[in-house]
Each structure stands twice: as C-alpha cells, then as structure tokens.
C-alpha cells in the first residue's frame, strides 16, 4: 500500500532541469542494471530464443547428436498426433475449469472478507496459506485426503450413507474433476487477495448513492461493484488461465498424468517427450504450440483492456 500511495510523489512531473539530468544518468542506469541483466540474458533470454528455434529442429537427447533444421516437419507430425491433441484438450478443460471455479470461489470469499464478519482474520490467513506450501506438498496432502480407503473425503461420504469407495484419482470419470478441485485450492490466494484489493478500492460513495436510490444488494453488486472490478477481474483471470495452462508440479505428483492419460496436461506430455523419450526438438515444438495458445489469451486480454479504456 505504501508504494501505491507514495509513488505519485516520485513520478511527479519533473522540472526541465531534472529531465536533462535524467538523460545524463541513463548510462548509470545501465551500469546499475548490468549485474541483473547479464544472468537474465544468459540464462533466460538466450534459452528462450534457443527453445523456440529448437522447435524447428530434430534435436534429440544424447551426445554428439547432429541437429538439423527440419522446418515444419515437427508440426505436421504433431497435427497427426492424437495423443497430443487429447492432452491439449485436457489442458484447456483443466485451465478453464480451475480458473473459472477459482474466480467464483475467490470472488465469494473476497466479498465476505470485505465485510465486517467475525473469524474474518482466520479465513484471510487460511486463504493465504496455500501460497506458502510447496505444490509437491499440496499434492501429497490431497492424495491423503482423497485416498480411497483411508481418506476423509470417502470417510465423510460413508458417514452420510453415500458410496464411500470412490478411487478419486484413479478412475477415469473422477480423476480430472478431482485434480481441478485441488487446483482451485492451491490457486485461491492470488485471486482472492487481488480481488479483495480491488473491492477495497471501489468508491464507497457509489454504494451509498445506490443504496439511497433504493437499489437492492444484488443490484448494487451487479451495477456498482462488478463494473468497478472489471479491469482487475480481467487481469487476474487472464494470468490465472495462463498459469494454470502451464502448471506442472501439482498434477505430476497427484496423478503423473494418469489414469490412462486422463490428466495428462500439455506440460506433462511435453516433459515426458523431452526427458523420458529424449525428443528435444519435438517437445520444443509442443512448447511452441502452447505459446500460440497463451498468445491468444494475452491478445484477448489486451483487446478487452483497450476496449474498456475506450468506453
């Protein structure tokens, strides 16, 4: 909060003399940034460019492999690879499923947290805790929860007289939905906190005016809160969508893509292709296809941002 409130001071319109000084200082700026810049260029910009290029080669794991460019061969092969498209479809179901449920759950929770309720502090802390837990451990925890014979989920179902022998992570019908629920649990913090921040910035005068005009709670939510939150909602759901589409550790430990590939997210698929079968070029091509999907998400995001700025 301090950063947001104080920053206008720092960026206040500078007098002309200061601007000249800033110009002279641009060499200093580069010098100060250099220690950060060098490792970033060497170990993330360079690999990134290299990774995109690898997607157009037949690179394979192993020593002394001759790497040659093979143009779009990888992509024509991919086009016919039904397993990959299936994993792609699963990735989209997972990403949209988690993002939408996560958004609705986080919106509800942040509305509650924005009210003057008791136990608000407890709920707020609990909403943040998944952040601090390594994804691997979240996965282990939920494996215990969903354990077919000893897990409390089945235990609870048995207690109320329902069939309590469901193998949540092991059967075709339930694996993907179960994994999505775990994804929602793990991703609640960012979304809740971001929405809560947005709610706290909705001008209260608007609410009061609407209340005086006699509009109901629901009307106020729909016509005042939601429009004010719009930019933040779009930003956080876009980011969530991309993060979920790229996610790996959680599902890797929960199911490793099983049963029978029912939860084989694209990242898991590409990981297997690269590091189990050694097909580096082909796996990088899958990465490039994923980039296209992400680029579409980003494009839609930027367009809706531009549109809301115009209106």
């Amino acid at each position: 909060m301090t950063a947001a409130t104080a920053s206008p001071i720092a960026t206040a319109p500078a007098p002309r003399r200061r601007r000249r000084q800033a110009f002279r200082n641009s060499r200093d700026a580069w010098l100060l940034t250099l220690p950060a810049l060098i490792p970033v260029v060497l170990f993330s910009v360079y690999p990134l460019v290299q990774g995109i290029l690898l997607g157009f080669t037949d690179a394979k794991a192993g020593l002394n492999q001759v790497v040659t460019f093979n143009g779009v061969d990888n992509y024509t092969r991919l086009a016919g690879n039904e397993l990959f498209w299936n994993s792609f479809r699963i990735g989209l179901v997972w990403a949209f499923g988690v993002t939408i449920l996560q958004f609705l759950a986080a919106l509800g929770l942040s509305l509650l947290l924005n009210m003057n309720l008791r136990f608000r502090g407890l709920a707020r802390t609990l909403a943040l805790v998944p952040w601090a837990i390594p994804p691997v451990i979240i996965a282990i925890m939920w494996r215990l929860m969903l354990n077919p014979s000893y897990g409390p989920v089945n235990e609870g179902l048995r207690a109320v007289g329902l069939p309590g022998d469901i193998n949540w992570l092991g059967s075709f019908a339930t694996a993907l939905p179960a994994v999505i629920v775990v994804g929602v649990w793990a991703g609640m913090p960012q979304t809740t906190i971001t929405l809560l921040a947005g709610l706290q910035n909705v001008p209260t005068e608007l609410h009061e005016a609407a209340a005086i005009d006699g509009s109901s709670t629901w009307q106020r939510f729909w016509h005042v809160t939601l429009p004010a939150l719009r930019p933040i909602i779009i930003a956080i759901t876009t980011l969530d969508l991309i993060w979920n589409f790229n996610s790996f550790a959680l599902v890797f430990v929960l199911t490793a893509g099983g049963p029978g590939g029912q939860t084989m997210l694209p990242m898991l698929f590409a990981y297997n292709e690269a590091f189990r079968y050694g097909n580096f070029g082909y796996a990088a091509a899958m990465g490039n296809v994923m980039v296209i999907v992400i680029a579409i998400f980003l494009f839609l995001y930027l367009r809706s941002q531009a549109r809301s700025r115009l209106s």
């Binding site: 170990f43 690999p47 990134l48 290299q50 790229n246 899958m286 992400i294």
Partner: peptide, 20 residues
C-alpha cells in the same frame, strides 16, 4: 520481460537450459 517471464511455458526454456 517481467510479464513474459510469468507467462512462458517452462518446457521451452528447460530444454536449452538443460543443454547449456
């Protein structure tokens, strides 16, 4: 770059990084 680093699928980075 900060935005890009948040959205890239790591599979594209890990293969060249592995080689480097």
């Amino acid at each position: 770059w900060i935005l890009l680093s948040q959205v890239f699928p790591f599979i594209l980075i890990i293969i060249p990084l592995f080689l480097v």
